[in-house]
């Protein structure tokens, strides 16, 4: 077989896969811009009426506000706790570091359904079922690994002699962190924080189980709607999630680009 022909075919397959990955995601956008009361892609005429309907509906709005509250708490909590342990991990031996990292990553490996029912069961005992705080803590379990990994990558790039120099000049541990470590890990911190926010904002499975009636989030409301019928309002809700995520994604990429020009595309 002609190997250049094989190469061409493999490139075409690759390009098709890339298009397959990205393009279908945006199907909710035209669906949300329909002027009619049913979903049609592409719509026959365009309007923003389903966004007006979204923001006029107390159920959708309160679910969105809940999502923002939960994601903000989860993001702040995991950034603080995650940065602390990421710094702590640079100060322990290799074995301890491996064990702790494994423990931190475990919630990503354990099936989400299992974590969900376990937290559901426990949250009812401690009175956190159906609360914003309960949801934020549940989500934090899934957000924490991203903060620790992102901050950890930045920490490894930091020259340890700078830390020793600062400490040698008499800076306290906190001063060293604030003046040397923090500026150096800013890109990792921002990336971790953004991904933590998005992870919580998008989270469905844990939320379905523990949000109850009191803390229904946007994805839970969307999930309930989609299971019954396809409406342009659901598409508008999806598009809002989509746009918010893309904005955060672009912000992180720009920050990484400014931190290391030309390396924005690094994985």
């Amino acid at each position: 077989m002609n190997s250049s022909l094989v190469k061409t075919i493999s490139h075409i397959v690759g390009a098709l896969v890339l298009a397959f990955l990205l393009l279908p995601i945006f199907a909710v956008v035209p669906a949300s811009l329909s002027d009619q009361s049913f979903v049609k892609i592409p719509p026959e005429s365009y309007s923003f009426r389903w966004y007006e309907a979204f923001f006029a509906d107390a159920g959708w709005v309160s679910s969105m506000l809940n999502s923002i509250k939960v994601a903000t708490i989860a993001c702040i909590f995991t950034v603080i706790v995650g940065t602390m342990i990421a710094v702590g991990l640079t100060r322990v031996g290799a074995t301890t570091r491996m064990l702790l990292t494994g423990l931190l990553m475990a919630p990503i490996i354990v099936p989400a359904i299992m974590i969900s029912i376990a937290i559901y069961y426990v949250s009812r005992q401690v009175g956190l079922y159906g609360t914003v705080l309960g949801l934020a803590l549940g989500h934090s379990l899934l957000c924490l690994p991203f903060v620790v990994i992102n901050v950890g990558v930045s920490l490894r790039r930091l020259d340890p002699s700078l830390l020793r120099a600062a400490a040698g000049l008499g800076a306290s541990g906190w001063q060293v962190f604030r003046t040397v470590t923090l500026p150096a890990i800013k890109p990792g911190l921002a990336g971790g924080a953004a991904f933590a926010f998005v992870t919580s904002f998008d989270e469905v499975i844990v939320s379905i189980f523990i949000s109850g009636y009191g803390a229904k989030t946007l994805p839970v409301k969307l999930w309930e709607q989609i299971r019954v019928e396809f409406t342009p309002v659901s598409a508008a809700g999806s598009t809002i999630i989509l746009v918010l995520t893309v904005i955060l994604f672009v912000a992180v990429q720009m920050l990484r680009f400014r931190a290391a020009p030309g390396k924005e595309a690094q994985v």
């Binding site: 990205l22 979903v39 999630i241 994985v267």
Partner: peptide
Amino acid sequence: FSVALYCVLVPFWISVLVRTFSWMLL
């Protein structure tokens, strides 16, 4: 390269629920 990389990277960030809903509509 950047275009191709973003094709793989962006879906990581987008809600699985939204992506699944898009497929349902399609």
